[in-house]
């Protein structure tokens, strides 16, 4: 091989090597390792591992908390799609409507601010909002005469999960709204003008033009919010001290964290990570399929 040939062969290697190394060592190797770990029992503070075959998996099938957690993740997903995607789209359509043109920058900016705030700050804030006696929410309800609605939002198994879900909505509606605004601004103005000449109402125009035109974005945002719902960790970890009361507001990520780092069952935590992996793989494939169809 000549020097020149050598160079053309190895030059691309040099460019992609740092990326491949990092991804290989700190992403793919742990991923593979996680599958191996799921067949062992081990502790965070010792180096010895015991091979136990499928025991973690049989435990998984008998573990009620997994069902509670997955149900809560599903609740997150459904509520997030309704509020973030559907409501976010409606908000975007309203703010892009010319009737609100003059005020929309103000609204748009305000609605987006929570996105820029760290989730731990937001959870601490909602901790204050949900306090049973001197919390903003209960105090506000009493103020407007709705004492009957006051309750220990995070202290009841019936409301804790919904209260934590509400926090994510508060933070993220603005983000999805902004994605839709970007998408709506790409719609050619002529489409609307033609519809207006035909005398279509605004609601009609929304369904006839806006909705079909942002169809792809609709899928994308749905997938983003659903994927996000699988990963929910911070809100229950901070707000309900790891999914309390009992395990009523636990999610699969919190269950994994607690199994591994609180109950010191690292092997079982890896098994739960496998569950998370399978779910995100399914969603990822779906995402790829949608992007493919979008490219055509």
């Amino acid at each position: 091989m000549t020097k020149r040939q050598l160079r053309t062969t190895f030059e691309p290697v040099l460019f992609v090597l740092p990326s491949v190394l990092l991804l290989g060592v700190f992403m793919y190797y742990p991923l593979v390792q996680n599958f191996v770990y799921s067949f062992f029992r081990f502790s965070a503070f010792s180096s010895s591992k015991v091979f136990i075959g499928f025991q973690n998996y049989t435990h998984l099938l008998k573990d009620d908390i997994v069902i509670t957690a997955l149900r809560n993740n599903l609740r997150y997903a459904i509520v997030s799609v309704i509020f973030q995607v559907c409501f976010g789209l409606v908000l975007a359509a309203i703010l892009e409507d010319r009737a609100f043109r003059r005020v929309s920058p103000l609204f748009r900016t305000m609605f987006f601010i929570p996105v820029t705030i760290s989730i731990s700050v937001i959870c601490l804030l909602f901790g204050f909002i949900y306090r049973p006696m001197d919390g903003l929410l209960n105090q506000f309800l009493s103020l407007i005469g709705l004492d009957v609605l006051t309750r220990p939002w995070l202290g009841s198994a019936k409301t804790a999960i919904w209260a934590t879900i509400a926090v994510s909505q508060w933070q993220s509606i603005g983000y999805v709204m902004m994605l839709f605004i970007v998408a709506i601004q790409k719609i050619p103005e002529e489409l609307y003008e033609a519809a207006e000449i035909d005398g279509a109402t605004k609601i009609r125009r929304f369904f006839a033009i806006t909705l079909p035109q942002v169809k792809e974005m609709f899928f994308v945002t749905t997938l983003i919010t659903v994927t996000g719902s699988v990963m929910v960790f911070n809100e229950p970890y901070i707000l309900t001290q790891g999914g309390g009361p009992g395990t009523s507001s636990i999610t699969i990520a919190v269950h994994m964290y607690q199994s591994g780092f609180f109950k010191d069952m690292m092997g079982y935590a890896s098994t739960l990570a496998v569950v998370i992996f399978l779910i995100s793989i399914i969603l990822g494939i779906l995402q790829l399929a949608v992007f493919k169809s979008g490219e055509d």
């Binding site: 691309p12 992609v16 990326s19 491949v20 991804l23 060592v25 700190f26 992403m27 793919y28 190797y29 742990p30 991923l31 390792q33 996680n34 770990y37 965070a44 994927t227 699988v230 990963m231 960790f233 990520a253 994994m256 964290y257 591994g260 690292m266 935590a269 890896s270 990570a273 496998v274 998370i276 992996f277 995100s280 793989i281 969603l283 990822g284 995402q287 790829l288």
Partner: peptide, 26 residues
């Protein structure tokens, strides 16, 4: 290089939580 591209794109889909325990050990 197209395999490298797939390698990279696969990383897009991976949820960091899946790697938590092994990363901790690593």
């Amino acid at each position: 290089l197209k395999y490298v591209l797939i390698f990279v794109m696969g990383g897009m889909m991976l949820n960091p939580q899946v790697c938590l325990i092994p990363l901790y050990k690593l």
